[in-house]
Write a protein that binds this DNA or RNA. Structure first.
Lengths: 246, 246
DNA sequence: AATCATCTAAAGGTATTACCTTTCTTCAAC
DNA sequence: GTTGAAGAAAGGTAATACCTTTAGATGATT
C-alpha cells in the first residue's frame, strides 16, 4: 500500500471532502477503499497529519473519522514509533463487542434474546457436529469435565461456573465454522454477562449438575458427529435455561 | 434529565477522566450512564462545551468520544438551534447498518452468510406465522403481488426486483416480533445489497416468476397462521436462491 | 390578517497551533 | 554483553477562533 503524500497530485482513490460532515465523508472513503481492496488487513494508513493533507482537512477532522471507524472495528490505532492507523484484522470478538453494545442499547429484550438463542444455538450444535476437529472435541469435553467438577462444590463462585458455561458455547460456535455465528454468539454472551450480574446467584447444586450433564451430552454428540442428536440436546439445554430464568 | 454544569461540584454520575485515551473513558461513562438508566432514549446531553467542563477535558476530546458512540448507534447528533447530542432511539435499522459494516469487514464469507440465512429466515417465517397482524399480512400479500406483476416484464430493472424482494423479507422479520431478528435481517440485506451489485443481472423471467410464486406462498402460509408450512416454504425459497447464486 | 423573507442565537463542524505522552530504535557508557 | 539514556515518530490533548446549520422570532409586504 503506497500513498502519494504530495497534495498537488490527485490521489488514486482518496479525494477531497465536501462541506458538511467532512469526517463522515472521510470515513466512507476509507471504508470504500478497504471494500475495493485498495487497502488490506494490516495495511498501515498515512499518519493523521498526512491524511489531513490528502483529504484537505484539519487533523481533528481526520481523527473524528478515525474514531468512527475504530468504533465499528474497521481500523485499529497504535501509539508510539511504528504506531499509526492500521486496517484491523478480522477478529470476531471485535465484532461481538460492538454487536453486544448494539443489542444492549437497541431495545432488544431478554425474552427476545432467549427466543432467538434457542434455535440459533441448536443450529450451531448441528453444524459443529459435522465440522468439529478432533482438537475442538477434546476441548469441549475438557470444559464439560471442569464444569462437572465445579458443579458439586458449592464453594466455587457462580461467576466461575457461568464463565465455563459461556466458554463451552463459544467453542461450539467456533466448531461450527461460521464467523457470523461466532460473532453473534459472542455478542449474545456480552449481553448475558452484563444482565446475569443482576440475577440471584445459583447455589442450586442439582441445577448445576443438570447443566454439567447437558453439556457433556452435547460434547459427546458432537464428538460422534451425530448432528441431529447434538441439535436436539442443545435445544433441550437452552430450554432448561429459559425455564430457570423466567 | 438534569445536568449540573458547575465544574466545582461533583457530578452525579460523570467523573473526570484519567490520562491516556480520555475519549474512551468518556464514551464508557456515557454508555454506562445509559445502561444504568440515568440517561434514557431521547434525552439530550449537555452541549459539547459543557461536557468538556464536566469531564475536565477539551472539546475535541469530547467530540471524539461522541463520534465513537455515534458510530455504534448509541447517540445521535443534530445540528442547529435545539440541536445537540441525544440518546438514540432504538431504531433497528441503525443496528442493521452498523452490523452490516461489521459483517462486511470482518472476514465473513458469502457462503457463511447464506448458510446462516437458510435456517435463520425459515425460523423467522415460523414465528411470523404465529404473530403477524392482519395489517402485516396484507402488506406481505401486497408486496408479493407487486413482485408478481414485475416478474413478467423484463423491462423492470433487476434492482427494483431485488428491492421488492428485500422489502418482503424485512416485513417478515418485523412480523416475527423480535428486534434481534429485525436487526440481523437488515444487516444481512446491507451485505447483500453491496455484493449483489457485482453479480450479473437477472433477466431470467422463469426464475423471477418462481421467486414471485415462492413469496406468495409464504405470505399465504403466514396469513393462515400455518407456522410449519411458512417455515418450510421459506427454507425452500432460500434454498433455491442459494443454488441460483452458487 | 395572512404570508413570506430576514434576522438571530444556540449548537455542532472545522481550522490552527502548540505541546504532551507513548514507544521504539539507537548508541554510548559501564 | 548488558544497561540505560537520548531521540524521533506518531498518536493524544488543549485552547481558541471562526464557519455553518437550523428553527424560532420578528417584521415587512400584500
Amino acid at each position: 500500500m503506497q500513498f502519494d503524500t504530495d497534495i498537488g497530485d490527485r490521489h488514486p482513490f482518496f479525494s477531497e471532502v465536501r462541506p458538511g460532515r467532512g469526517f463522515e465523508d472521510i470515513a466512507m472513503q476509507i471504508k470504500e477503499a478497504i471494500l475495493q481492496g485498495h487497502l488490506k488487513d494490516g495495511d498501515r494508513l498515512p499518519n493523521e497529519r498526512e491524511l489531513g493533507s490528502l483529504f484537505g482537512v484539519s487533523r481533528p477532522t481526520v481523527r473524528e473519522a478515525i474514531r468512527s471507524l475504530e468504533a465499528i472495528g474497521v481500523v485499529e490505532v497504535r501509539r508510539g514509533v511504528y504506531g499509526g492507523i492500521f486496517v484491523a484484522e478480522p477478529k470476531p470478538d471485535h465484532v461481538g463487542k460492538a454487536l453486544a453494545a448494539l443489542l444492549r442499547f437497541r431495545g432488544a429484550t431478554i425474552s427476545e434474546l432467549v427466543e432467538f438463542r434457542q434455535t440459533f444455538e441448536a443450529e450451531m450444535a448441528y453444524w459443529a457436529a459435522q465440522r468439529a476437529t478432533t482438537k475442538q472435541v477434546e476441548q469441549l469435553v475438557s470444559i464439560a469435565n471442569k464444569i462437572k467438577e465445579v458443579a458439586h462444590s458449592s464453594e466455587v463462585p457462580w461467576e466461575k461456573f457461568i464463565e465455563l458455561d459461556l466458554a463451552f458455547h463459544e467453542e461450539v460456535a467456533q466448531a461450527s465454522r461460521n464467523q457470523i455465528r461466532v460473532a453473534i454468539m459472542l455478542a449474545i454472551h456480552g449481553v448475558l454477562r452484563k444482565t446475569s450480574l443482576m440475577l440471584e446467584k445459583i447455589d442450586d447444586v442439582a441445577w448445576r449438575e443438570q447443566q454439567a450433564s447437558d453439556l457433556m451430552g452435547i460434547a459427546e454428540a458432537i464428538g460422534e458427529g451425530n448432528a441431529e442428536l447434538a441439535q436436539k440436546r442443545m435445544a433441550n439445554h437452552i430450554e432448561r435455561n429459559i425455564s430457570k430464568f423466567n
